[in-house]
Amino acid sequence: MLSYLIRRVAWLIGSLFVAGSAVFFLLRVLPGDPAVTLLAVGSSPDQIDAIRHQLGTDRPVLAQYGHWLGDLVTGNLGDSLFTQMPVLDQIAGRLPVTVPLALSAFVLSIVVAVPIGVFAAVRRRGLLGVAVSTLAQLGIALPIFWIGIVVVWLVAVQWRALPPGGFPRTGWQDPAAAVQSLVLPVATLTIAQGSVLVRYVRSATLDVLSQEYVRTARSLGYSLPRALWRHGPRNGAATVVQILGILLASSLLGTVVIESVFALPGLGSLLLTSVKARDLPIVQGTVFLMTATVLVVGLVVDIVQRLVDPRLGART
């Protein structure tokens, strides 16, 4: 296990390095001068030089690359081109919106979708089972922002039950208002992620149900639900952990769109406005952090999988 852990962490560091390099080269080395694309047509050469200097693009590419990697290692992501504030501070300022949003949608979709998925598998021939999987299929097919718009229209416009978007200026100082403004975004993200999860859990359950040990349990007098309860969790766990990893990553990414639907000042909207304003340091910093999070989640998933299924370890 320990040697696996070491290998896996080394792999993670390698991936982070590659991801960091990819971000850098995509932004700097592809044809085109960022400083030129950044400014409006007709800017004076002085302005261009100033931006070049700020971006560091007046230095040789390799020096820039080394600088970027060095900054990454020391946790320095540079300053915004426009506000001049450190990128890391700006990102940190957005987390109080994005983290609660992503995490509660993640947790909620597990709580809702796992039982539904199991049900859809056990009753896959029944009317209700078919209906549930059809709905889930639909939830996957509909774009998340469409779900969001419909939710807003229904709850905020028709019933006037909750605000259609925005976040209190004072942040979490008024917890009730903050929670209120997160209800619809979380619900939307939960519907979208939950639909995906229902499908995954359903097929993982079907997989367990088709195993011979379930037949053995039944031959010993267990009912189908009890047999499933006896064998399902431990045998489905490895698959489910993997799915949860994917889900956590996609919850994080989902916030980019969700925050745009609900006008929430989170990490996603920081990224979006920076992309539109071409604030290079913020874009590369945020993208790198998000990718790094996805990679770290992948690491955790792999390790937890080893823990729940000792056979995986036995094979290597």
Partner: peptide, 10 residues
């Protein structure tokens, strides 16, 4: 691990 959306944004 590098989602399409982020790639597009870059």
């Amino acid at each position: 691990a590098f989602p399409t959306l982020l790639l597009a944004m870059l």
